[in-house]
Design a protein around this nucleic acid. Structure first.
Length: 726
DNA sequence: TCTACCATGGAT
DNA sequence: TCCATGGTAGAA
């Protein structure tokens, strides 16, 4: 007996294997990849038909029939199905979760139909002269229609006819109303892009990419180019080549929210050939975009992380811009890395993948050094502007000279100088809120969140202490909840406090602050950036979002208040992230006139991540970093899996973790595959759940992953598995 | 995930 | 004895 294998569309790991259903004859042949409605228990559920199977003998359970077909054409191509399976096994998540990444509507059991609209078709016997003179607009529409022969209701409304008038004309003799699929095709002027000249260096990088696009080769290129070297130009050339071959190009950008340079340039150059995916799109806009890609009305999709799951086959090119950016790794739910998925999809679609960055991820650069990726380098800035001058300030020294303020002498001087020259400055501080923690002077106890193991942060707005890990907030206590003393003091400086201090020291400066507290109100972040770009502010103060890809012409100076905030995070990639952040933010200075100045304050002035970023020396940094990782077996010279067990009972969490370690111990080969833990995490408790962790590190984790995928560990409650944590 | 089922246990 | 709660196996 032939049965259909259906994955129930529920994010439950326990339902990871497909369920068998019969296909009733009246539904005909259902292609794999189609969404179907099936009975499950006593409810009706949505599922994805992933294939067929022959049952040798009658099963012990009842085979129920599929109730309905939800997609006219299968939503999932076979490539999407196989990529989802790969993702599920690699990242140890449920197949249904992996599949749902490719869908755009989380509402279930909704069938999707291609958008249709009504068209009025004029028949030979239509006589507008019979329409009474009194009905002026209808008569005009009649003659207008006769001229056109056929027109859609939508287009007539655009031409100034109201809906009642059109409705009335539709009833007249000689007018036939037809339903047609919406056609939104607009002509694209390819010349715009073709005329974009490339420098010789760019041309050299572009040649092999072009060859790979035309020959449909799944090569991966690492395009390493300093900021301002014209990577976008190469992306656009490659995309236009892909478009000329009538295949789809996917362009991934880090965070689309903040007015993204690349998006604007693509839209300007390619017009309606570009479809922009971002989280603010409505469901119908998403469907419409997808439909455009499927009909090849548009060939380029540009968007953040999730755009890699564009439901399309025939991908001809994938570009990951700023490939080192950490926003490509999803940190909640399914913790996939978009760069990894891009690689899989490029292989399955036989198309090249371009990874572009000024500071490539250590992993990508390593693979390029191994000859697995092809390294392409842009060493010169297009207009040959010099890179900014970077000064490193040792804050320990500042303190020795009695300066306890957040601004070193050099920093104050740079601010004063920039303001004096009527130029703009960006100041980076990786801490939001007012103060970093609140502590009692008597007993030395910091005030902690009652639900999480973290110090609460004072936020001026609302005069409240907030926890950055949960929604908990409370007013600042008058007396210490621990010892009753009144000596409560604020320590450390967040963006809010620094803003205040800046304003006090430089009363005339116009200061804009950009951090999560400001961005939560939608559109406000973009507005601040736009205003700053328009010169309405002198200083832009903010968390790392000020460091990313904006091109402000008036900015000549950049200040980093604490380079250590990222460096001190206990992660193997802390140095890499520090180097990236410093290099990125320094790159904001002097983009147009070339006299950029940067001041970096730090307590670790001798750390190589800081020294190498001062010298704009990526390769030097890479060499030191790869050595450090080689010694410790960190990625890319080994892979890691992070297990987090959460439980409201600390002992239970520990017990579960120990059970997991015991089960995995058979794979332990010291030096080859190591298991660390179970240990309490740095932050012991979040939202009243205790956190215990296990870390597995090894040169090859495939077999241990396969084991976990098929064992009880996979469905263990309260366990979160993070493959390739960053 | 959702649901039905069973076990436990406190209140009546 | 009743019902409420909690934990858990199974769904085709």
């Amino acid at each position: 007996m032939r049965v259909a294998e259906v994955i129930i569309n529920r994010p439950a790991k326990k339902m990871n294997s497909p369920f068998s259903y019969a296909v009733p004859p009246h539904l005909g042949e259902i292609a794999p990849g189609t969404r179907v409605a099936v009975p499950l228990g006593r409810t009706k559920e949505e599922g994805i038909l992933i294939g067929y199977r022959d049952l040798a003998e009658a099963p012990t359970y009842e085979i129920k029939p599929i109730q309905a077909v939800l997609d006219k054409d299968p939503w999932f191509t076979s490539e999407m199905l196989s990529t989802a399976k790969k993702l599920s096994k690699y990242y140890l998540c449920a197949l249904s979760e992996a599949l749902s990444l490719f869908t755009i509507d989380k509402k279930q059991l909704k069938s999707y139909e291609r958008p249709k609209e009504q068209w009025l078709v004029v028949q030979p016997w239509f006589q507008p002269e019979h329409i009474p003179m009194k009905r002026k607009r209808q008569r005009e529409l009649g003659f207008y229609l006769q001229e056109l022969g056929t027109a859609s209701v939508h287009s007539l409304q655009k031409d100034g006819f109201t809906l009642p008038v059109i409705k009335q004309v539709m009833t007249y003799e000689g007018i036939i109303v037809e339903e047609r699929y919406t056609q939104t095709k607009t002509k694209f002027n390819a010349c715009v892009v073709k005329e974009l000249p490339l420098t010789e260096e760019q041309q050299q990088c572009y040649e092999p990419i072009k060859r790979a696009v035309t020959t449909c080769t799944a090569d991966t290129f690492l395009l390493h180019g300093v900021t301002g070297s014209g990577k976008t130009q190469i992306y656009m050339k490659a995309a236009s080549e892909c478009l000329a071959n009538d295949r789809i190009a996917i362009v991934l950008v880090p965070e689309i929210m903040l007015t993204n340079q690349i998006v604007t340039r693509f839209v300007e150059a390619f017009g309606d050939e570009v479809v922009v995916f971002h989280s603010k799109l409505t469901i119908s806009e998403r469907y419409n975009n997808w439909e455009r890609l499927r009909r090849k009305d548009s060939h380029i999709i540009i968007g953040a992380r999730s755009a890699i799951f564009a439901p399309t086959d025939d991908i001809g090119l994938i570009i990951v811009d700023e490939e080192h950016d950490t926003s490509y790794k999803q940190e909640d739910m399914i913790r996939y890395h978009a760069r990894k998925v891009a690689k899989w999809r490029s292989e399955a679609n036989h198309c090249p993948l371009i990874l572009g960055s000024a500071t490539p991820s250590i992993e990508s650069y390593y693979l390029a050094m191994q000859g697995i990726y092809r390294l392409l380098e842009l060493k010169h800035r297009i207009f040959h502007q010099p890179l900014p001058k970077v000064q490193i300030i040792d804050m320990k020294e500042e303190m020795m000279y009695g300066n306890y303020s957040v601004f070193s002498g050099a920093m104050s001087h740079l601010i004063r100088q920039t303001l004096g020259n009527k130029e703009q400055m960006i100041i980076l501080l990786n801490r939001r809120g007012y103060s970093t923690f609140v502590m009692c002077r008597e007993c030395g106890e910091p005030i902690k969140c009652p639900h999480c193991d973290v110090a609460m942060v004072y936020h001026q707005s609302g005069e409240a202490l907030r926890c950055h890990y949960c929604e908990y907030h409370e007013p600042v206590p008058r007396v210490c909840p621990h010892c009753g003393s009144q000596k409560i003091k604020f320590f450390g400086s967040g963006t809010q406090k620094v803003e205040e201090e800046l304003q006090r020291n430089f009363p005339k400066a116009r200061i804009a602050r950009l951090d999560q507290d400001v961005t939560t109100k939608k559109g406000q972040g973009e507005q601040i950036l736009a205003d700053f770009g328009a010169g309405q502010y002198d200083i832009l103060l903010g968390t790392q979002m000020v460091a990313k890809g904006h091109d402000f012409k008036g900015v000549t100076a950049v200040g980093v208040l604490t380079a250590d905030s990222v460096l001190n995070i206990p992660l193997y990639s802390a140095s890499e992230r520090t180097f990236d952040l410093l290099t990125q933010v320094a790159g904001r200075a002097g983009r147009s006139n070339g006299k950029g100045q940067v001041v970096i304050q730090t307590y670790n002035p001798l750390h190589y991540a800081i020294i190498k970023s001062k010298a704009h020396d990526y390769i030097g940094f890479y060499k030191e970093e790869i050595q450090a990782r080689e010694m410790l077996g960190y990625p890319p010279l080994g892979a890691m899996i992070h297990f987090r067990i959460q439980h409201k009972d600390k002992a239970k969490a520990m017990a579960i973790a120990e059970k997991i370690v015991n089960a995995l111990e058979v794979f332990l080969v010291p030096g080859e595959l190591d298991i660390m833990g179970p240990y309490e995490e740095g932050i012991k408790k979040v939202r009243d759940l205790y956190r215990v962790a296990i870390m597995v590190r090894g040169n090859d984790l495939k077999s241990i992953k396969d084991f976990i995928y098929n064992s009880w560990i996979f469905t263990q409650e309260g366990l979160h598995i993070d493959v390739d944590p960053v």
